[in-house]
Design a protein around this nucleic acid. Structure first.
Length: 775
DNA sequence: GAGCACTGC
């Protein structure tokens, strides 16, 4: 009975203390990540014959003892003529690359690195950009760790997929092996590794997922956390976890790599525990060109105006070289580009300046347009004229994710959009805020990649020194932690309050997350993981979405909820190009469902799936739908479906002809999103959120009018006004039935919501009475 | 009648 689901899970699924076997809840034999350790006997010996010394079966590492090797020994092996890992003859390209590798700054400190690596379990390594740390350190480790003799691997984590892929490719080339064999990468949707793999680049999130099934990370002999200074949620949790794993697994080595000198913080973090780990720090300089920094003498009141003025001034007076300007968002950037183009043309006409080519760059731009920024600067307009110049106006995507060579001038107004989380109303929003000193440095560095450059900071030197914070707040302090807490529980961390976070989140944020998970029946009243919680943790989703997916079987609509969940996990599928808004809105109306946006998205997805694969892309374009988002939703959907099937969830949906088809879906939405509900206010056009009592408006993108009394919403967006976005109308009975604990009338303050719920309860009671009389 | 900084599973 759907109506009893909540209570049932909370009460009957509380794990008995006896039943709790291991910290992660799964026996190692069932663990998919450890399968290689049990399949057909012991892998290490098998690995030796297949990996060790290649076809000839000769051990090219003979005479070397693990964790006592020297640079000299490693270099001798690297010098060939045979590849010690494959036994093949090394290629000419290999030697060409080897020569360049030996010139990298890290190389000068290989001895020092090896010594510290061998003498310590945990090591912190600081290498600035251009030091070669990401490609070289893992190779230094390989020649000392000799992973092929232990059957274990070396892992190197990256915050971004593209980085994991491209670095793996580079290192495979450097080692003269085929990508996916000895060197591979593992990212969501793509595991390019094999049984031969000894070095694996992967996303930090992927390693965290693995840890949830194998908390001791038995597959690895060494874990390198790269770009730790970026402090992603996954890196932060992995650091806390690895600190613990290190105690349980003395054979595991950990290298934490960071680009900033803030690495002392990492060192302290790994060093405190009874001095068990010394976590020494090794720093290697980078190789970049000097960048001259200029500040404004007075604060600027309008940073966009100041930025445009500065760009044009550079164009008019500075020698050849491209410009990178940092602004905060799409609209601001497009607007700035328009104005720069106009002014640039005018300068060319009136002052005989070189031509100015302006490019916008931000994340939601389609890839082919992002690629355009790599076009070279335009040539002089006429023979002997002044050289042309390229200006890229970008969000902070150009700060870390994308590197543009040839930038000589950086204009930094000192702002970016940053996420802020308000635990009181459980809302994440984006705010234009001053950047950190570290960000400012990173931005300036972008000017010195190919030759000496200049950075114009549109704030005073005093402001830089006294007003900017040192580092941007780590992700963990800016996020809703519901899924993080669920992950930690699954990782076997029982005492979250005392979990050793590098930066502990606010207690209120933790409390909110625990409360949310309790309402979702993922944690019981003692904070223990329930059966539902354990199931939900298997999905790479927000807990509310995971719970909705699991509950969908009860409402006979798993297939539809699967699609909706996937659609909610990808960027917006409805496109709205600036000058074709009207056409786009009309196209969307074709898919509109009277009950709301979730169902509208589902209609569009079904229509997309009905297309011929060969013409789907064209069809999307004609209908103002994002092909990229839809096909990525399809990918996500498949991944989620596999997990559902593995959990034995009944995947049968009611047929489309059934009169309850859409009602079932709307009820299932309530099962996950009962905490994101708004009720229409009495006096007209506004809505009010249930429990938090926030006044909100329907986002103008919705297909719904103002007539619906109760809505579930996917998102609360705080911009000029408070909006709820992606909404579907529901019946209040469904809320009371599906989440009786959350909708306990007595917990509501007196007001419209309470009165509305009260009326619904009375209605339900009357109906029950009638039914009884009739029955 | 309005946006969507950026990542990741």
């Amino acid at each position: 009975m759907p109506g009893e689901r909540d209570r049932e899970l909370v009460e009957s699924d509380r794990p008995s203390k006896k039943a709790k076997v291991s910290a992660n809840g799964s026996a190692p034999e069932d663990n998919p990540y450890l399968a290689h350790m049990y399949a057909g006997g012991s892998l290490p010996s098998a690995a030796k014959s297949s990996r060790y010394g290649g076809s000839a079966g000769q051990d090219h590492f003979a005479g070397l003892t693990r964790h006592t090797t020297t640079t000299e020994q490693a270099q001798k092996l690297e010098d060939g003529p045979l590849n010690p890992f494959t036994g093949e003859t090394l290629s000419d390209t290999y030697f060409k690359i080897l020569k360049k590798r030996r010139d990298l700054p890290v190389h000068a400190q290989r001895d020092e690195f090896l010594k510290l690596y061998q003498d310590n379990q945990i090591l912190v390594f600081v290498g600035e950009t251009g030091s070669g740390k990401t490609t070289q350190i893992p190779q230094f480790v390989l020649y000392d760790d000799l992973p092929h003799t232990t059957g274990k691997k070396v892992a190197c984590t990256q915050p971004r997929r593209v980085a994991a892929m491209s670095v793996a490719k580079r290192v495979a080339d450097e080692m003269d092996v085929v990508l996916g064999e000895e060197v591979g990468y593992n990212i969501r949707f793509e595991n390019n590794t094999s049984s031969k793999t000894i070095l694996q680049y992967m996303t930090d999130g992927m390693l965290l997922r693995e840890a949830m099934n194998d908390p001791d990370l038995h597959r690895y002999s060494c874990i390198i956390l790269d770009e730790a200074h970026e402090r992603t949620l996954a890196t932060d949790i992995l650091m806390g976890l690895l600190k613990d794993v290190a105690k349980r697994r003395p054979d595991l080595k950990i290298v934490v790599m960071s680009a900033t000198l803030d690495a002392q913080k990492f060192q302290r973090y790994f060093g405190v525990e009874e001095n068990k780990f010394n976590a020494p720090l090794l720093a290697v300089p980078g190789r970049t060109h000097p960048v001259e920094i200029f500040y404004t003498p007075e604060p600027e009141k309008d940073y966009v105006e100041a930025a445009l003025r500065t760009v044009l001034q550079i164009h008019g007076t500075e020698p050849e070289g491209d410009i990178l300007l940092f602004l905060t968002g799409e609209e601001e950037i497009e607007d700035a580009c328009k104005r720069l183009r106009l002014e640039g043309d005018e300068m060319q006409r009136e002052q005989d300046c070189g031509p100015l080519k302006v490019y916008a760059l931000y994340g939601t731009l389609p890839p082919h347009q992002q690629q355009k920024i790599f076009e070279p600067a335009p040539p002089p307009a006429r023979e002997g004229g002044r050289p042309g110049r390229k200006v890229v106006v970008s969000t902070n995507i150009a700060e870390t994710s994308l590197t543009i060579d040839g930038i000589v001038y950086v204009v930094d107004p000192g702002f970016s959009k940053q996420k802020v989380y308000n635990p009181r109303i459980r809302v994440e929003s984006l705010l234009v805020s001053p950047i950190s000193k570290a960000s400012a440095q990173q931005r300036a560095g972008r000017a010195g990649r190919t030759r000496p450059g200049k950075c114009f900071r549109l704030y005073t030197e005093k402001a830089f020194k006294t007003e900017l914070i040192d580092q941007t707040y780590p992700e963990i302090l800016k996020s809703n932690l519901a899924s993080t807490v669920l992950e930690l529980k699954k990782l076997g961390i029982d005492d979250l309050v005392h979990f050793d976070f590098m930066d502990p989140p606010a207690p209120e944020t933790m409390m909110r997350a625990l409360e949310e998970l309790n309402y979702l029946a993922c944690l019981d009243d003692d904070g223990e993981l329930t059966h539902m919680g354990r199931s939900a943790s298997e999905y790479p989703l927000d807990p509310a979405l995971a719970v909705m997916l699991i509950a969908s079987a009860e409402f006979r609509c798993p297939s539809e909820i699967l699609s909706i969940t996937a659609l909610l996990s990808v960027p917006q599928i409805f496109m709205r190009p600036n000058h074709r808004r009207k056409e786009a809105d009309q196209a969307k109306q074709l898919f509109a469902h009277p009950d709301g946006d979730h169902l509208t998205m589902l209609n569009a997805f079904h229509a997309y799936k009905g297309q011929d694969p060969g013409s789907a892309q064209k069809w999307c374009q004609e209908n103002y739908l994002s092909y990229r988002s839809l096909s990525s939703a399809d990918n996500v959907r498949n991944q989620l479906r596999v997990i559902m099937e593995k959990q034995g969830i009944d995947m049968e949906s009611t047929s489309y002809e059934d009169r309850n088809y859409y009602n079932n879906i709307r009820q299932a939405l309530c099962a996950g999103f009962f905490m994101q509900v708004a009720k229409k206010t009495a006096q007209g056009k506004g809505y009010i959120t249930v429990k938090d009592n926030q006044d909100v408006l329907l986002h103008p993108s919705t297909v719904l009018g103002q007539e619906n009394e109760w809505l579930v919403y996917n998102e609360f967006v705080l911009t000029t006004k408070n909006y709820i976005r992606t909404v579907t109308s529901v019946k209040p009975e469904w809320l009371l039935e599906n989440a009786p604990i959350y909708y306990d009338i007595d917990s509501f303050p007196k007001g419209e919501v309470r009165t509305g719920l009260q009326r619904t309860m009375e209605k339900l009671a009357r109906k029950q009475k009638q039914d009884r009389r009739r029955g």
